[in-house]
Design a protein around this nucleic acid. Structure first.
Lengths: 209, 209
DNA sequence: CACAAAATGGACTGTCAAGTCCAAAGACGA
DNA sequence: TCGTCTTTGGACTTGACAGTCCATTTTGTG
């Protein structure tokens, strides 16, 4: 039905690039504050002091393309917000510190999860949406797994444990914890999931006694 | 702004009740197949062979009230679909059997999660939506915790472990696993999370050696 | 400077879907 | 059976919002 989203955009003036960015960030901000459903193109225009022709100039695919761009934008933030801890899971205190950062990040974020919001609006099956989420999850899981491997190298985690599977489980716990927090407002689940995940890693070092 | 959703509906003929139910189930089915975004009231009407006046007669709050009703409907299904295993977590094989059932259920369900879809459309903060999800999570977690306690009674799980917290972590893992499955299609995360959660319960029985 | 390409303003259109209304048909108790 | 309350049909209104179009201004370049 549509295939020429994400088209050429051959030349972009400095000014043009700035405008595009302004629209993108404005849209992201508005969505973060109001949710996708309550975000119309006109809202974005008003907020960013741009006109319709500009929006469609930089996002020829219209609303859908803009939403997808926002999804990418937010997906990047997710991992960045966990730096530098996420990239440095090299000791138990470091894991703890990362855990705290994650909890804190999502506590601040409150009830709206822009990424989930956007992708579930685009439809989870949409190729673009799926690609963004899949890549995010993959990168996230990889970084965790790297941390696990490092701890295995230093002998702090049982070498017999599958790092990728452990990372997958931990990641699932985080996602679920955040999801529950969105709906219920409680942050316990996220904390419990992280704690249990990490505890399990630690415990693995002490085999069946 | 609105407060009289879920109003009186004083008398309901047998016929009326049937119609109401037909609309509700038709809406749920359509949403399960197409997602909320792609579900208009007219779609539901066409599918259930009813007229607009009927829909607004039985759901005076219109779309919003209907969506909320669907959310409740789906929330009930979630736990029912885990019976009888969920209510009988009394041995390790039983836990395993439950795990398989959960994985199977969500594997069948595919990419659309009606409940998440609906609530995220209603807006996670909506009192009605929040109530439905919160209650579901609470009941779910309670049932898991009951299972944990039972295993503690029979000495198969360390009595020092907090059943509610363990259940919260496990629940988070499930939610996250499902969420990831929705977006990526992969079922590994759900399985890994369940397995790790249960493994952690089992491992607790063998204290620090 | 001059010209081509890019950026911008904003009115206009078309569609689509939620919700209203009233009149007609059917159910049910007295 | 009668009268009332419920149920139903479906046309109509209303509003909102995505997307189009063209005229105008600005920018960059040879």
């Amino acid at each position: 039905m549509e295939s020429n989203l994400e088209v050429a955009m051959r030349t972009l003036t400095r000014k043009g690039a700035a405008t595009r960015q302004r629209i993108l960030e404005g849209a992201a901000a508005h969505i973060r504050e109001n949710g996708v459903v309550a975000t119309t193109l006109d809202d974005v225009l008003a907020r960013t002091a741009t006109s319709k022709s500009q929006l469609f100039h930089y996002f020829p695919g219209g609303r859908e393309e803009l939403l997808l761009a926002v999804a990418r934008f937010e997906a990047d933030r997710v991992l960045e917000d966990q730096r530098p801890q996420l990239g440095d899971l090299t000791s138990w205190p470091a894991w703890r510190s990362w855990r705290d950062k994650v909890v804190d990040r999502y506590q601040r974020q409150g009830r709206l999860c822009p990424l989930n919001s956007v992708t579930s609006h685009l439809g989870n099956g949409t190729p673009g949406s799926q690609a963004v989420v899949t890549e995010l999850m993959h990168r996230w899981q990889t970084e965790i797994a790297t941390g696990v491997r490092h701890m295995q190298d230093t002998g702090e985690i049982d070498p017999g444990l599958d790092p990728d599977r452990a990372a997958a489980a931990l990641l699932a716990g985080i996602q679920g914890g955040v999801l529950i927090q969105m709906s219920t407002g409680q942050t316990i689940h996220l904390e419990a999931a992280l704690d249990m995940g990490i505890a399990h890693l630690r415990a693995s070092r002490l085999p069946v006694a």
